[in-house]
Design a protein around this nucleic acid. Structure first.
Lengths: 226, 226
DNA sequence: GAAATCCTTCACAAATTTCTCACAATTATT
DNA sequence: AATAATTGTGAGAAATTTGTGAAGGATTTC
């Protein structure tokens, strides 16, 4: 699994630096923004997996910024706040913040919260209503049952599509041939497990260099990994 | 913009009340229904912008209710479900639920989902409002129930028109024959699924080269794609 | 009530996909 | 280095799905 990118928005440099250090030690990649404008710019220009947002900032406060970010993206937001009262919580959540952490906080708690929110969010995003998965220049449109690589459609058969979709939806997870048969072909399917290999073969052929996303896990089966 | 009206269908009163409170705080107007009958009655008699539908209910379950609502209206539906086996059903289901949210959910997430679905849906409806869909030199006039290709009217029968309209309104999305029968012929229609093929055939014939917009999705059904 | 139109079903041909198998290539084990 | 286990691959048979014409039933129109 690739590193998750967290954007830290806080006007205090020390605070940003401290949090950044914690998170990088815990395996996250960090971006920093000193104010709302910087934050918005980063959200527009780069893929961010989660935002840590200080409520108390000059010029534009965290709540207002949250609204403006929400207009651009569904990226999960965790509020950092010194005020721990219930009103803040309700107001924050109402605006689309996904959690909040009260300062001062322990590094462990913060990391745990971040991981929980990201887990929830990727879980949902993978199964989003518009059913669109993107991996670089490859897009999988679940509802349209269509795969586009570098702007051109790659025509897949039913089983090929189902197989690719399933693996992509469970990115990073390895499955045995039997698992795949069970979950894609159905519980009652009784057929040769090597059939999976054949479909993997044609998938790799059709996807050309993007077939590299489908990895062989020797002795186990296959997985999808970017 | 006037307030959007959300119908909450859940047999647990506490749940309804809680969700209702959150939504009203976020600027929605709420209706509540304790069971399927109440829900159907409200859908028939009032304008509803979105339905939040609990899957697990006594008597009539959420899936069945969804079908019956779909027979009446295209109002967007978000399923509420506890994580577990029934979740898989939702995923597999393409009966016209527009999204689903897994319990427990954060208020912020719920509101965000609702807003996203409503935004998408009213966008769609605004386009529908003038009831004119255009695809190159082909126009579908919903209100006039008339199709014009390169300036000349193509005379379609009732079912042909409904089928073309439905597919065109859900451009890019693949539907099984059963889905199409359900949503165009009605949820209680019991007929041969291949009937759809026959209508597709005559549609393609009548639309001539514009019949290419109707694509066969092998092993699944059909979709409309420009 | 007759005629015309529309909808549905059916059967068969055509197209496409899926599966199996055998052997080659690769990777792990002794 | 030899052997065993696992995976890659090509070809073709088997199975599935779709296209289509024809025909009968249903519905609407006159």
């Amino acid at each position: 699994m690739n590193k998750k990118r967290v954007l830290i928005v806080d006007d205090e440099e020390d605070m940003r630096f401290l949090v950044c250090m914690y998170l990088e030690n815990s395996g996250f990649e960090c971006l920093q923004a000193e104010n709302g404008e910087e934050a918005l710019e980063l959200v527009k220009q780069t893929k961010v997996d989660l935002i840590l947002l200080d409520i108390m900032m000059p010029n534009i406060d965290g709540f207002a910024l949250c609204e403006r970010i929400r207009a651009l993206s569904d990226v999960p937001i965790i509020f950092l706040t010194a005020r721990g009262d219930e009103w803040d919580k309700v107001k924050g959540l109402k605006l689309g913040g996904d959690d909040y952490v009260v300062k001062p906080f322990s590094p462990g708690e913060l990391v745990a919260r971040i991981e929980a929110v990201i887990r929830r969010s990727t879980y949902h995003n993978e199964h989003k209503a518009d059913g669109l998965l993107s991996f670089g220049a490859m897009q999988i449109d679940e509802k349209g049952r269509k795969v586009v690589v570098e702007g051109k459609e790659v025509v897949l058969t039913l089983k090929e599509f189902d197989l690719l979709l399933f693996l992509a939806q469970h990115r990073g997870q390895a499955f045995s041939r039997e698992d795949l048969l069970m979950r894609i072909w159905g519980y009652d399917y009784t057929g040769n497990a090597r059939t999976v290999d054949t479909h993997i073969k044609t998938l790799r052929l059709k996807l050309k260099e993007y077939g590299r996303f489908i990895k062989t896990v020797w002795g186990i089966g296959y997985k999808f990994e970017v």
